[in-house]
Write a protein that binds this DNA or RNA. Structure first.
Length: 472
DNA sequence: TTAACACG
């Protein structure tokens, strides 16, 4: 089958992919030339009664929980549509900041509903891409022929600002389908005006392609656009792979900066710099110019040859001499690289997720449990009453009764009902303080629109309707 | 084959 793009966007109940939920999904399929194929998708997903959404998030989207319940699909119905219709073979799924945001919500939703969280984005010649980093690198290297927005003199890459300044159709920002239409328009504009860079980055969405260009065994300087780099230089620099990080990830050094600023610092000093909280960093603070690159997240990278054309070196304000000199210093100080890598690798001690529904990254599901998951997905109301799958993975054992309660509440035994209510009570009590604080703050905003006031009223009613009686 | 968050 021919390759198609599927552009998509979500509106969610908050910012945390494992605690918050998808409330709206919109997407449009196009052919390789961005001609629309078929009808757009624009659907709501019913918020479950175990979730208090973030009021400030809903003030942006305008979607109420009640609306998703009355007009939306259940999560499992949506998962089926997503997997069976949207993720057809040979589809490139893409959005705007989707790799760090929307895709994570998709994974978490599939995980809760007994679908594989990853196959949708790699199997059957499917892949994923993200226009945000494409926009960043285009702006840095080939900005001609496109207008670029700034806010207070700072370069910003918000989708609605890019579409507006270029007179592209964008009827309503933060409406999912409207954002998708704007994204397609921006994508077409970049593909048309910068075809070579666009097609190069399209090819580079593949993890193996990235690892050919960026690797520690044969390190070469490369151009790299990332949200972590300064807006002043259009989020783009020349970086250099210095050490392996976790998995296939690598630490890369930002060659804009001379390593001599840090090589004589002790481990304790380096640790202190790395651990200084953002708010405590003063004017003197100089962050260590090392970051992790993740090849499976379609980072926007290119060989430094691209800087030879169109005045590239000047555009990102770096000189070849400095690049060569800084590489030389790095090579002369291998122990500096070792120390930085060791310190950075030691850092991520995340507190473990408490709940199985948040534990999708604790490990892959084995093939037997995948088959059991498939059986679960195909159970109907009557079958699920009797069925008790013998999952080997303890996470799936814990998720199963939730799945049952949400999708087939009438199939619950009285014990299962009690268990689900207990889970619901705990989760809601955890969410309640933050919810109330946010709700109070939002209510104090003076110039609320009537739509926003309506959202806040509905949020109050939602809270009252789902909180267990004893807590009202 | 697929993964790793919790900003800076």
């Amino acid at each position: 089958m021919a390759t198609t793009y599927f552009f998509y966007d979500l509106e969610t109940s908050g910012l945390n992919p494992r605690d918050d939920r998808i409330m709206q999904f919109a997407g449009i399929r196009t052919d390789a030339d961005f001609n629309i194929i078929g009808e757009p998708y624009n659907l709501l997903v019913a918020l479950n009664d175990d979730t208090l959404p973030s009021p400030s998030a809903l003030m942006v989207t305008g979607i109420t929980p009640q609306k998703t319940v009355s007009d939306g699909y259940t999560e499992s119905q949506f998962a089926k549509i997503f997997i069976e219709e949207i993720c057809s073979p040979d589809t490139i799924l893409l959005g705007y900041n989707n790799i760090r945001f929307d895709d994570e919500f998709i994974r978490a939703l599939l995980w809760r509903n007994f679908y594989d969280p990853y196959e949708w984005s790699y199997k059957d010649n499917r892949s994923r891409w993200d226009m945000l980093d494409v926009v960043r690198l285009t702006r840095a290297l080939r900005p001609e022929n496109i207008k670029w927005p700034t806010v207070n003199g700072v370069a910003v890459n918000k989708l609605e600002l890019i579409s507006k300044i270029n007179n592209l159709e964008h009827t309503k920002a933060h409406d999912a389908l409207s954002d998708v239409e704007a994204l397609i328009a921006v994508t077409k504009l970049i593909a048309k005006t910068n075809n070579r860079l666009f097609n190069y980055l399209l090819k580079m969405r593949n993890k193996k392609e990235i690892m050919n260009l960026v690797n520690v065994k044969n390190p070469k300087p490369f151009v790299y656009a990332s949200g972590r780099y300064d807006a002043e230089y259009n989020k783009t620099t020349v970086a250099y792979p210095i050490a392996m990080a976790d998995y296939d990830n690598m630490f890369v050094y930002d060659l804009r900066y001379n390593p001599e600023n840090w090589i004589n610092k002790s481990n304790d000093e380096i640790i202190e710099i790395l651990q200084t909280p953002f708010l405590e960093r003063d004017k003197q603070y100089t962050h260590i110019p090392v970051k992790k690159i993740q090849p499976n997240r379609a980072p926007a990278v290119a060989p430094i040859g691209v800087l030879e054309q169109n005045d590239g070196w000047n555009k990102i304000k770096i000189e070849l001499n400095d690049v060569e000199n800084n590489i030389k210093i790095l090579k002369q100080n291998p122990d500096f690289i070792d120390r930085i890598a060791k310190i950075l690798l030691k850092r991520p001690d995340f507190t473990p997720q408490a709940d199985a529904e948040s534990k999708l990254y604790d490990g892959f599901i084995n093939n037997q449990d995948k088959l059991r998951s498939e059986v679960v997905r195909n159970l109907d109301q009557n079958q699920i009453k009797q069925y008790n799958p013998e999952f080997e993975d303890s996470r799936l054992k814990q998720i199963y009764p939730r799945y049952k309660a949400r999708n087939y509440p009438n199939a619950l035994s009285s014990d299962e009902r009690i268990e689900y209510d207990e889970y619901r009570k705990n989760r809601l009590n955890r969410q309640l303080p933050g919810f109330l604080k946010d709700l109070t703050e939002q209510s104090k905003i003076t110039n609320l629109s009537s739509d926003q006031k309506y959202v806040l009223e509905e949020l109050n009613l939602w809270m009252e309707s789902i909180l267990p009686d004893s807590d009202i």
